[in-house]
Design a protein around this nucleic acid. Structure first.
Ligand code: FES
Ligand code: FES
Lengths: 150, 150
DNA sequence: CAAAACAGAACCGATTTGGTTCTATTTTGC
DNA sequence: GCAAAATAGAACCAAATCGGTTCTGTTTTG
């Protein structure tokens, strides 16, 4: 399986929490408590998001974090990129040369770009709001809940 | 970056070689020589592909491998899946329950399926032929070759 | 029966990853 | 002004993963 790193996954969890508590200043401690993540880890992610600009941070006593934009205006792409770097499966993307291990075969690689593009588009087309506030139960399958394992 | 494992990448390289030498029985040794991959590694990949059914193997002296289908009929998805397992970024896919680390937040995960689907479709829509026989030079940028770093 | 080739598992070193810890720095309130 | 509460940022470590090799079969050919 092509694994999305656990950190990126947790990143979405953290941002989901922030979307739920929108406009409430959240400390790292609160986020950790709310998500069940270890405090140091949650803190690390929050710092990353603050640096990337999707969260604003206030330091000092009574500090904390807050969303800079509405959940509708934050894409999952931004979240994942903040923790994982650019969204792409292979190095040979976007004229990023010099990484070709098997250069004799290089010309074929154009095909990867198509896949990278598709992936990036999928991430960009999914908003934090869509993650944090999923479709209401009436659209779900039998059982009343969207089908999500466990 | 969401990295596609190097093995999967090499897998495509190996299959590309097989597409080029279609209908010629290729030994692991020949494939290794043709691709520049270490022999043991090429062998390992060939075995995997044989088991997955996209290559047929003949053992014994004068043995080797051959494509079972035409390059047009083999998708990159099949190649990658053979090496990496199912194409998906997260565990919470396709009713595959029991992996939820942060269950309190589970309902939101439906969104991942959209991304997983997009990724899988991209892989399925790309044939080995498209990888092995890229668009001819007249469609490429200046320089006469499709733009692929290095 | 010997050589050539694949089948499959086991194994090992190196890299990556997840996660913690430590030292600033900033802000607030007494 | 000082202590407490909080983030900023880097350094660090253990564990899991990955890339790659090796070894022991098995099958086929001549
Ligand atoms: S640059 Fe990526 S394969 Fe050549
Ligand atoms: S099953 Fe994947 S998050 Fe709950």
């Amino acid at each position: 399986m092509i694994r999305l790193s656990r950190m990126a996954d947790y990143g979405v969890v953290v941002m989901t929490h922030m979307a739920w508590r929108r406009h409430e200043n959240q400390t790292a401690h609160q986020v950790a408590a709310g998500t069940g993540l270890p405090e140091a880890t949650a803190g690390k992610l929050l710092k990353v998001f603050a640096r990337s600009g999707i969260l604003t941070s206030h330091r000092g006593a009574h500090g904390g974090y807050e969303l800079t934009r509405t959940p509708e205006d934050i894409s999952v792409a931004e979240i994942v990129e903040a923790v994982e770097g650019p969204i792409a499966l292979t190095l040979c993307v976007d004229e990023h040369p010099g990484h070709c291990g098997v250069e004799a075969l290089c010309p074929m690689r154009g095909g990867w770009n198509r896949i990278n593009a598709a992936l990036r588009e999928a991430f960009e087309g999914l908003s934090l709001a869509a993650m944090a506030f999923p479709a209401p139960p009436e659209f779900a399958g039998p059982g009343g809940r969207p089908a999500v394992g466990l």
